[in-house]
Design a protein around this nucleic acid. Structure first.
Lengths: 182, 182
DNA sequence: CCGAACATGTAAGCCGTTACATGATTTA
DNA sequence: TAAATCATGTAACGGCTTACATGTTCGG
């Protein structure tokens, strides 16, 4: 599970509270790993129990902001986890299941939904490219910047792939629609 | 959730038992959606309760093979689900989290693990291309074949992307290793 | 000082995973 | 007929999601 380590990474970049983490997840790390606020709060508590992070102000209580920072043990754990050998999770794509279903019982309205997927992927692609232009145009080649850029490029590659694929799929399904005079 | 509909699709292609489904999942649909035998048995029971599938032989009992076929209600449900509008699940890639971590606390041994990822993706890519050569060389253009081919091509595109990305990442991380004389 | 937005928290349910158990079938 | 394998099943755990609850801060 990556969530605790994504949180450690975010907190190392800058200590902050649960709700701020949620916001940062929405904008950067969250492009490749999402978490709801409930997951984040639960996990922060667990990380604190493990002695990997600590609250900056001893102040407690419901509704009060509570910022955390990473302890040396947490840093060490993140280091261990990052270098560890791990199997890549196999693909799991619902759209492929639906295309297989379409092959057996179609045509259904699937092509319309793929068109909306295409629009969403185009949006994300535009967003990523905008970030790239804004943050990585000059290309001051530090280690940290190059790695962040690499992650962003992965996002761009993936979105480009799905844009390409959606168009292929629409081509096949639309042609089919004509044949069968839906 | 796609599992019940993946099962319906597989059972429409050919009625069979839970263990056979598990085997077929390992070889075709399973490239894009996996399930353990426990998930499959639990789900088959649920689908039977819902009246979407039915056992071919009334024969019951632990250890006895039990084949299922899809009922009209199940076919209708699959049709409904396939055409329904659905949000694409956002990306969730552990490797990206680890690259972000590497940017903050690296270098770690991450590059070695990416090398093994590369090998795995190359294997999968070779497998998919072999299947493509074997099953889609002639290209008799029926609807079903074109859609199946499309799904396989998605797999090839995805694996090609990750092969490409792993090589990029190794480039960045290896260069980094030299700088820091790990 | 009141309402809206913010920040944190509790609870329940579902899906996926793992470990293990047991009956049936095959094979030496 | 004993051992190995196959087919099905039970149970428990953990992560993710959703709904809801409660306290705090901020803007008018």
């Amino acid at each position: 599970m990556s969530l605790p380590h994504a949180l450690l990474t975010a907190l190392l970049e800058r200590p902050c509270s649960g709700s701020e983490l949620a916001g940062r997840f929405d904008r950067s790390i969250g492009f490749f790993w999402q978490a709801t606020h409930q997951q984040i709060y639960r996990e922060l508590k667990r990380l604190e129990d493990l002695g990997w992070i600590t609250a900056l102000a001893p102040e407690a209580g419901r509704g009060r902001k509570r910022a955390y920072q990473v302890l040396p043990a947490g840093r060490e754990e993140l280091r261990r986890w990052t270098g560890e050998a791990r199997e890549p999770k196999p693909l799991r794509d619902e759209l492929m299941v639906r295309l297989r279903a379409e092959a057996v019982i179609g045509p259904t309205g699937l092509v319309r939904d793929i068109e909306s997927h295409l629009a969403l992927h185009l949006e994300k692609l535009a967003l990523y490219q905008e970030i790239e232009d804004r943050d990585f145009a000059d290309e001051a080649r530090t280690r940290q910047r190059e790695l962040r850029h690499l992650v962003l490029k992965a996002g761009i590659m993936v979105e480009t792939l799905w844009v390409d694929f959606c168009r292929k799929a629409i081509g096949v399904l639309a042609e089919d629609g004509k044949d069968q005079a839906q």
